[in-house]
Structures are given as structure tokens and as C-alpha cells.
Design a protein around this nucleic acid. Structure first.
Lengths: 198, 198
DNA sequence: ACCTGAACACCGTTCAAGT
DNA sequence: ACCTGAACACCGTTCAAGT
């Protein structure tokens, strides 16, 4: 479906640009993405990207948007799991951490894009949609009496914030030599104690 | 003291460059920093920065290093406060959040610099030095029996990670319309419950 | 519709030269 | 020592033109 692709010289230029840009992003950071370089790789003139993206920022935003969409899918899958609050929360946060470890530069780009004062509405919506999966996990925990009452958004913030911070504070997948994977369980354990009804 | 400044055309070029670069950083992001533009502002030729910084990355790293140094001072002041664990931890995290709110782009640059594979040793050391102030706060909490035993580094990670994540997850100082300042207390409250001996 | 080539105004970096 | 100007190889973006 989509728009019937009627190739002139390339055919899937938009897709190809995004794919090549993401490769450059993960290998060398956002700074290394160059429209001219991408065009060269794909064998089109350096002005071709203009047909699909108004400017370089638009391409970066599109990359961030797709990032949030994939992020949403990953979190959604984890949130759909059954089990008690602890096991569900663990699955959710592991999905978060796995995504962050797999696509560190993309995640960084996603948040930077979202924080721009002129961030496109689409991007903010995609971000909210992804984090909404935390909402349902907390609501279920509350329904089962395993979590104190309160706005699930604010409760989920504690854990998501901790996970996001864990990524930022760590250096190449470790914090003080301890693999993040190990720390995730430990942190969740501590936080659950703080959220448990007394 | 320092190196006696014997001005040729400028005199304090290194300092002036860093100051101007930080202004550009906070107003328009790291992308907007241009050595040529900085040189123009300061009235020197565009090759002058080379005398003080091997390349643009070296200037950005120097900016990040000074950021960590100021960060360390801010956290150190907070960590020196007296009081029980909760009040000390609150002061420490507020210092963190205040710094992040005041210098968002700088903090971002600091962590990006630290995460580069070829990050200078100096930068990693400055980062460790800043976060070491959390260590003493936790150790004191443990000594007073207000905090469970365990590696203070790992315990402090929970709170610092949460604060760092809070900044990243929020948009212009708010999360879902709630000012960060308000959320800080709430999050600390929850986390302390998770760290309290039973 | 979609792509191109030339042109413009920028970059960072290098290098021989000036004081 | 410290700074300069010219030169090189890049950028992103614009625009008239081609198919």
C-alpha cells in the first residue's frame, strides 16, 4: 500500500536515506550524518534528499519518530506479558534497557529531538504513546493491591527515570564495572519496596 | 597566578573562547558552536583557536571538563550540609536538579563527552569526583542506621539515576505539567522507603 | 512528480609566513 | 610564543532547469 512507488532513479529514496542515516548515527553519532555523504552512498545527487525532507533537521526528526515507534512496540510487547507486578515491571524495564543498549545514539537523538522548543507534535505524541505502556503496568499493580494508590504516571516516572538515568550514568554498558543487566534487578527491587503499600 | 598573560592581540583567548562557546551552547545547542563564529565575535583570526585547542572536539571537551568541575563544587557544597539522611539526600539531589535546569545543554555535553570511546581520562576523573559526593552522603546514612548496608555507589545510583532520568524524561522543566521541583521530593520519599532497613 | 548541476555562503583544518 | 591569510576539502540550502 502506502504511496505507489514509481521509481525515477531510485524509488525508495526516503526509506534508503533513513536507513543509511541510522547506520551513520549508530556508528559515528549524529554529528557524522551528512546529507551529501548519504546521497553519495545511495548514488543520487546531493539535492535529492530535499524532495523527502525539508532540511537536515527534518530527516533527524523522522529518524527520532521511527525510533519512538519501534520503542513503543518493544515496550508494548513487554507490557502485554502476564504475571505479578514485579515480574511485569521487570519485563518492562528490561525492554527499556535492551532498547537503550542496542540503540544508544538513537535514544539520545530521540530525547534531544523531543526537547527542542520547536519539536513537531508528532514526536511528542509518539513519545507519550511509548511511555503509556508503563501506565497500564502500574494500574494493574494497583488493582492487585501491590502498589500504593496514586497517579500511575507519577509512579512510573520513578522507575523509568531510574532506568534512563542508569543508561546516562553508565559507561559502555557498565556502572563501576557492574553490568547494567545486573543492576536493573537490584534497582527495581529497591523501588518496588518504596511503592509497596504498608 | 597561572601562566603570566602576555597579550599579543587578545590575551585571554582561551578563557574568552570557552566563555563564548558556553554562551552559544546554552542558547542554541552544541551544533551551533562554530570556531570561526567564535573567532569573529572575539575579533581574532579564525585560526587563533588552534593555539589553545587542537580541534573543535578539544574545545568541547574542555567545556565539558569545566562543567564537571562546577558540578563537583555544587554537589560538594550540598553534601557538606548537616542533618539526617533524608534532608541531606534532598539537598544533594536538589543541587543536581538545579544544575541540570540551569545548564541543560552543558550537562548533555558533559555526558556525551564522557561516553565517547576516546574520552580523555581527565573527563572521566572529573565525573567520578563529582559523583563521589553521593558516596559520603550514603555512608553517613548507613552509619546512622537510616540506610540498608551495601555498596554506597550502588545505592546512590538509584537516586542519581532517577534524577538524571527525570531531567531527560521531562520537557522544559516539567513532567506532565508537574514542576520537577515538586517531583523531586516525591521521588526521594519513595526511594528512601526502598532503602530503609526493615 | 522527481531528480539534477551550478552557485552561494558557510564550515574545520592545514601551512607557510609574519611580529 | 602567538597570531595571521590564503588554500583545501568539505558542508547545507537554494534555484533554474531537465525528464
Amino acid at each position: 500500500m502506502k504511496e505507489s512507488p514509481r521509481p525515477y532513479h531510485h524509488g525508495h529514496l526516503r526509506e534508503a536515506l533513513l536507513k543509511a542515516a541510522e547506520k551513520a548515527l549508530e556508528s559515528g553519532g549524529a554529528q557524522t550524518i551528512s546529507l551529501r555523504e548519504l546521497s553519495r552512498e545511495l548514488g543520487v545527487s546531493h539535492t535529492s534528499p530535499r524532495r523527502h525532507f525539508a532540511d537536515k533537521q527534518a530527516l533527524l526528526d523522522a529518524l527520532a519518530l521511527r525510533g519512538f515507534e519501534r520503542f513503543e512496540i518493544a515496550l508494548g510487547r513487554a507490557a502485554a506479558a502476564s504475571g505479578d507486578f514485579k515480574s511485569r515491571l521487570t519485563k518492562l524495564t528490561r525492554a527499556y534497557v535492551n532498547f537503550a543498549l542496542k540503540h544508544p545514539a538513537l535514544l539520545s537523538l530521540m530525547f534531544e529531538a523531543k526537547h527542542r522548543v520547536d519539536a513537531p507534535r508528532e514526536l511528542l505524541e509518539a513519545s507519550e504513546k511509548a511511555f503509556a505502556h508503563a501506565h497500564s503496568t502500574y494500574a494493574a499493580g494497583q488493582a492487585a493491591g501491590e502498589v500504593i494508590p496514586g497517579d500511575p504516571w507519577r509512579l512510573s516516572l520513578v522507575v523509568f527515570a531510574a532506568m534512563q538515568g542508569l543508561m546516562v550514568l553508565s559507561t559502555n554498558g557498565k556502572f563501576k564495572g557492574i553490568p547494567l543487566d545486573h543492576l536493573v534487578g537490584e534497582i527495581i527491587e529497591r523501588i518496588i519496596l518504596g511503592l509497596r503499600p504498608r
